[in-house]
């Protein structure tokens, strides 16, 4: 996969003129999805930003067939659609395109059920780290200390949960993280995921300009810095093998990472951090790295 090849795809995923905010990361993700999944996929979309981005009846901005469904129901609806297609001998990839709320919070039990049943569906969690569609409220994946409209002064007091690792421990055959700053990596992960029969989840890091309070022209820059500073780790688990992705691999070595402050200072949601908070965030980050490195070792032994 190369960028020119990715750009050649006929299916654009999301059309120009859609009502997404300027600099919206979801539209980057959806474009990659369009190119790779093209005419193969049916989308199931729970409540979230994409309920709006997909456009206003009688028009639709997405070049996929899609079912809009209640917030907590997506993975179950996808399971039903899959069962129906199997029963009727129909071909196609059933994809849940969800935000962090629909997948990791209100829809977590539903997602867990589908993962345990090893449903032959692909779930892409486009994680903008808060409930952005309702106006930037803290979610289960909002990082510690981030300012949101429900943690407006002190910042979020709780840890963020790791939905990809949760799915890994559901024994799902394919789990990966990705970032909107690395479309080729995301596209290749989608392609590999499609080769796996069973439950697949890709956790896509999607920095949100209005939600994180950064300039709408810097979505890719912020997403890239998340990887380069080690704040977001790209990895892939596929049928027994766990690998830190090449884009993140150099940053196993702490000294090769850019200073975390470079990533944080671009975001208004972290503007209130004290130096000791940054040190604390670095510690948490280090723990995430330690776990991921151990997981890579653990799975390479098998």
């Amino acid at each position: 996969m190369s960028l020119p090849r990715l750009a050649q795809g006929r299916n654009r995923g999301v059309m120009p003129g859609n009502p997404a905010c300027a600099g919206c990361p979801h539209t980057i993700g959806l474009r990659v999805m369009g190119r790779v999944l093209g005419d193969k996929a049916v989308l199931v979309v729970p409540a979230g930003c994409t309920s709006i981005i997909s456009g206003f009846y009688p028009r639709s901005s997405l070049s996929f067939p899609l079912l809009h469904v209640p917030f907590a129901s997506a993975a179950a609806v996808a399971s039903g659609l899959r069962a129906s297609m199997d029963a009727r001998g129909e071909e196609g990839v059933v994809v849940v395109w969800s935000g962090d709320g629909g997948a990791a919070d209100i829809g977590l039990a539903t997602l867990s059920g589908a993962a345990v049943r090893n449903e032959d569906i692909l779930v892409v969690v486009s994680d903008n780290e808060a409930y952005m569609n309702t106006g930037i409220q803290a979610s289960g994946t909002t990082p510690w200390k981030a300012l949101t409209t429900t943690s407006p002064v002190l910042g979020k007091s709780e840890e963020r949960k790791d939905i990809a690792l949760l799915m890994l421990f559901h024994k799902a055959p394919y789990v990966a993280t990705a970032s909107v700053a690395y479309p080729i990596d995301f596209a290749e992960k989608l392609e590999r995921a499609l080769k796996v029969k069973g439950f697949k989840l890709i956790h896509l890091h999607s920095p949100c300009p209005p939600g994180w309070r950064f300039d709408a022209g810097k979505t890719v820059e912020v997403a890239k810095l998340a990887v380069e500073t080690g704040a977001w780790i790209l990895w892939e688990y596929m049928e027994g093998s766990f690998r830190i992705s090449p884009q993140s691999k150099p940053f196993v070595q702490k000294e090769r990472r850019k200073p975390l402050a470079e990533y944080l200072k671009l975001q208004g949601r972290f503007s209130h951090l004290r130096p000791e908070d940054v040190i604390e965030i670095e510690k948490k980050m280090e723990e995430s790295w330690r776990l991921v490195v151990e997981l890579e070792k653990f799975y390479s032994r098998s």
Partner: peptide
């Protein structure tokens, strides 16, 4: 609802 035929069910209206 089938692959290859863009069609939205339940979108804003």
């Amino acid at each position: 609802v089938e692959p290859g035929k863009p069609f939205a069910v339940g979108n804003l209206g």
